[in-house]
Amino acid sequence: MVDSPFTDEILNAPSQRKFSMPVFILFDETTDPIDHVYHIQLKMDLNTENDSLMCKCFPTSLAGPALNWFKNLPRGSVYSFRSLCDRFISQYYGNKRPAKDISSLFIMKQRADERLQAFLTRFNLTKSIVIECHPSTVVQAFILAMTRGTPFHTSLVVNTTKTMDELNERANGFMRLEEEEAANARKTSIISMEEKTKAKIRQK
C-alpha cells in the first residue's frame, strides 16, 4: 500500500451520494498543466465546491510518470484542491503553452483547400493563447486571414461583427452550406463514376 499525500481530513471526508465519476482526459506530462486543471474543473461542474471530492478525483486524471509524481508526494502534504493544483502546475510548468501576441493572428492565412470549419477551429485555438487582444481587432485579423471571395468572407466584409462569439454564430450557417455542397459534390462524383462504369460495360 502507498501512503496517501492527502491529509486525514480529506481522506475521511464523507462520500457524496449519487456521484458519478467523470471521464477525464489523462495527463501524461505532454500537455499544458493549466489546461488540464481547467478541464477537471469543467468536468466536475456542480461538484467544484466539494474540495475533498475534487482532491480525490484529481489523481484519476493522471497517467504514467505524472501518476508516479503524485504517488511520491509526501504523506499528508496535500490539504486542499488549490494546494494540489499549485504543486501540479509548478511541477509541469515547463509544459505550459507560451502566450502569443496579436501579430500571430495577423500572419494566419486560410489554406486553399481548408474548409471554413477547420480554419475557424485553427484560428480559435491560436486566439486562445493570445494575450491582451481587443475583440474587434481579432475579428479584423480573421477577415484578413480568410480566402477572399468566399460567401462567408463577402458576408463579413458587407456586414462585419464586433466579437468572435458573433462571428462563430454566423459561421454556423455557412459551414452547413459548405457541408451540403461537399455532400453534393461527392454524390455527383459517385454518379459520374457509375455512368463511366456503365459506359465501359456497354462498349464491351
Rank of each mutant, 00 (worst) to 15 (best):
V2Q: 10
D3I: 02
D3K: 09
S4I: 04
P5Y: 05
F6K: 06
L11Q: 08
L11W: 02
N12E: 10
P14E: 12
P14M: 10
S15Q: 12
Q16W: 03
F19K: 05
F19A: 10
V23W: 02
F24Q: 05
I25G: 03
F27M: 05
F27Q: 02
E29R: 12
D32I: 01
P33H: 01
H36Q: 13
V37I: 15
H39T: 04
I40E: 01
L42A: 06
L42K: 14
L46Y: 09
N47V: 07
N47I: 06
E49K: 14
M54K: 12
M54R: 11
C55L: 09
C55W: 11
C57E: 15
P59G: 09
T60N: 12
S61R: 08
S61A: 15
L62C: 06
G64D: 13
P65S: 14
L67R: 14
W69I: 07
V78N: 01
L84K: 04
C85R: 02
I89K: 05
I89M: 07
S90I: 03
S90D: 10
P98R: 01
P98F: 00
P98W: 00
F106W: 13
M108T: 04
M108I: 06
Q110Y: 04
Q117V: 11
A118H: 10
F123S: 03
T126W: 00
S128G: 03
I131G: 00
E132A: 14
C133V: 15
C133I: 14
V138N: 00
Q140D: 12
A141I: 10
A145N: 10
R148K: 15
G149M: 04
G149V: 03
F152K: 01
H153T: 07
V157H: 02
V158T: 09
T160D: 06
T161E: 04
M164G: 04
M164V: 13
D165G: 10
D165Q: 14
R170P: 06
A171R: 02
N172V: 15
G173R: 09
F174Q: 03
M175F: 06
N184M: 13
R186D: 15
E194G: 08
E194L: 15
E194D: 14
E195C: 04
K198N: 15
K200Q: 11
K200V: 12
R202K: 13
Q203F: 12
Q203T: 13
Q203G: 02
